[in-house]
């Protein structure tokens, strides 16, 4: 399969996968009752999935564990986490993280 075909298939798949979870509960499940255990499980998914994405991208930037002050991703993550928990704002976290990374790369 060519990369182009793959990209279009991913775009099409994403369309479905992004729309159905937004639409179905509102239109259908409002008429049903969801078991509380399922709701609780779903409530942990966002935090879990985000942590599962962040950990390797920050601690293993070159696909191997890199726990060192030489690791710019790890260092930039510190002010980014601080900004995130302090402001709970996408924009401020983005600015802080990118600025930290830009400065670290100067050295």
């Amino acid at each position: 399969m060519s990369l182009q075909t793959k990209i279009y298939l991913v775009i099409f798949g994403l369309w479905i996968i992004n729309y159905l979870p937004r639409m179905l509960p509102m239109v259908v499940l409002s008429k049903l009752r969801i078991p509380e255990t399922v709701i609780r499980w779903l409530s942990f998914v966002p935090a879990a999935v985000l942590a599962a994405i962040i950990a390797p991208s920050v601690l293993m930037p070159d696909n191997r564990l890199f726990l060192s002050p030489q690791n710019a991703y790890l260092l930039a993550a510190v002010p980014a986490f601080a900004a995130a928990f302090k402001t709970k704002s996408l924009v401020w976290t983005l600015i802080t993280g990118m600025l930290a990374m830009a400065l670290l790369q100067l050295w």
Binding site: S43, F44, P46, A47, L50, A51, I53, I54, S57, V58, Y73, A76, A77, A80, F81, A83, A84, F85, K88, S89, L90, W92, T93, L94, T96, G97, M98, L99, A100, M101, A102, Q105
Partner: peptide, 25 residues
Amino acid sequence: RYGVNFALPAMFIALLAMQVKDRTA
């Protein structure tokens, strides 16, 4: 050079902070 390579981790870090609402999370 402008830190664009950290845009993605930074965004996930922000979303994670919004999701960690209690100790269990």
